[in-house]
Amino acid sequence: TTVEVQGVEYRFDNPEEAEKFAKKMAKSLNLRVELHGNKWRVE
């Protein structure tokens, strides 16, 4: 599972970890998070 934060990609073996990371990043950067296939995008 991939998390893309403002163009930078982070890879996770565990989808739940990816989701937690994406939501945490979105909250700290005041952005929103969307799931596209198996990629979380924070923008």
Rank of each mutant, 00 (worst) to 15 (best):
D13T: 11
E16N: 09
R11L: 12
A18N: 00
T2C: 15
M25D: 00
L31V: 07
E9F: 09
A22L: 03
Y10M: 03
E19W: 10
H36L: 12
P15Y: 08
N14F: 08
E17R: 06
K27W: 09
R41S: 09
A22C: 06
R11F: 14
E16A: 12
K27A: 15
T2P: 03
V5T: 02
L31P: 01
T1N: 10
K23S: 06
N30L: 05
E19K: 06
R41Q: 10
V8F: 09
E16W: 12
V3N: 00
R32C: 15
K27N: 11
G7P: 00
R32Q: 11
V42I: 07
N14T: 12
P15R: 08
Y10A: 01
L29S: 03
E4M: 11
V42H: 02
E4K: 05
L29H: 05
Y10T: 03
K24P: 00
E16I: 12
T2G: 04
E34Y: 14
F21C: 13
K23W: 11
Y10H: 05
N14A: 08
L31A: 13
H36A: 09
M25E: 03
N30P: 01
A18E: 00
T2Y: 14
M25Y: 04
D13K: 09
F12W: 02
E17K: 07
L35Q: 10
W40F: 06
V3S: 00
E16Y: 11
L29T: 03
E43W: 14
V3E: 00
W40N: 02
G7E: 03
K23V: 09
K27H: 13
Q6S: 08
E34R: 12
T1V: 11
L35R: 13
K39Y: 07
E43N: 12
F21D: 00
G7W: 04
G37Q: 06
R32W: 07
N14Q: 08
E9H: 07
Q6M: 13
E43D: 13
D13Q: 10
N30C: 15
N14M: 07
E16C: 15
D13F: 08
N30S: 05
F12V: 01
W40P: 02
M25A: 07
K24R: 13
A22T: 01
V8E: 06
K27L: 14
T2R: 08
E9R: 08
N14G: 06
E9P: 06
V8T: 08
Q6W: 11
Q6D: 08
E9Q: 08
L35N: 07
N30G: 14
K27M: 13
H36P: 01
V5D: 01
N14Y: 08
E19S: 06
E19F: 10
V3L: 02
N38C: 15
V33E: 04
H36S: 10
V33N: 03
H36W: 09
M25Q: 05
E19H: 06
H36E: 10
W40V: 04
K27R: 11
L29D: 03
E34H: 13
Y10Q: 02
V5P: 00
H36N: 10
K39T: 14
